[in-house]
Design a protein around this nucleic acid. Structure first.
Lengths: 159, 159
DNA sequence: ACCTGAACACCGTTCAAGT
DNA sequence: ACCTGAACACCGTTCAAGT
């Protein structure tokens, strides 16, 4: 609060005209964060687009290492959060994942990606070099591809 | 600090006799947390033991929802952290995972398990029922089993 | 040796008062 | 309408002083 106020050349108390509390301000920042994860629209097939999401999430984490861990703390109920989540779900349907598994699989993907990226910016991998982490992230994406293909196999016949 | 001091019927300043700073106190708590993750020793084959680790991690998270997210913030360099990590690595070697992939695979497993469990206790899944989360966690473990088997296939011939 | 009081530099927040 | 001063209830930390 104090630092935001100073950046605006205003006393901390003046902020309460614009925002209900510190928590509300953080909620707003999380919205901005989520909006940044949305990758360049509709380039390539669903595999490439999901890859784009994963990369966009990681880059956003690196741009905002202090804020990014907040994503683990709030359910995806705000507009921006729903947009990201629903876009991933649509891609999974496009991949012929059975409807009954779409929501669960989306949670699995986002959990793995967030788990890694938050670990990275929060400090758990502090002692690992960048190339090692790049390779780790690539391997996670390979594994997630495996998970998607496993659900596709049980899904409806591809058109 | 103030709350710890009150619990000890002492002023906050007295704590600095026993601990260098608040960060050092948190480091100590993280050690205790990690010690709690160690599952009942050596029951069953490596598959069952890895399953035991995952379950123990989740139960520890549920017992200490406020502290558990700290695990994402520190590298596994302390004694207790090394113990857990090395035990998982030993199990992977037992499963014939090639030595070159043991460390990376251990990171993948712990990242997935921590990513889910921290999401759970930090609030990201706040709106989901317990059975749904149980099923999610089971599916993550199934996926991780897939990842391990994929590495085993590329490893040395089983004895 | 162990603890405390006073002090410093921070927080988020409220509310009456100012312009 | 918009901002501020004063105030309240909190933080972590240091250090000289007490026992």
């Amino acid at each position: 609060m104090q630092q935001v106020a100073e950046r605006l050349s205003v006393t901390p108390m003046a902020l309460y005209r614009c925002v209900a509390s510190k928590a509300a301000l953080l909620d707003g920042l999380v919205e901005r964060l989520l909006a940044e994860i949305n990758p360049p629209p509709a380039s390539g097939n669903w595999r490439e687009q999901l890859h784009g999401f994963a990369e966009a999430a990681r880059q956003t984490a690196h741009r905002h290492p202090q804020m990014f861990p907040l994503l683990l703390q709030r359910p995806a109920v705000t507009p921006a959060a729903r947009r990201v989540r629903d876009k991933v779900r649509r891609l999974l349907r496009q991949a012929n994942v059975p409807e009954s598994q779409v929501a669960r699989l989306e949670r699995l993907l986002s959990t793995a990606v967030l788990g890694f990226t938050v670990s990275e910016v929060a400090g758990r991998f502090g002692h690992h070099s960048r190339p090692v982490l790049d390779e780790d992230f690539a391997q996670i994406q390979t594994l997630l591809t495996l998970a998607i293909d496993a659900e596709r196999a049980r899904g409806p016949a591809p058109t």
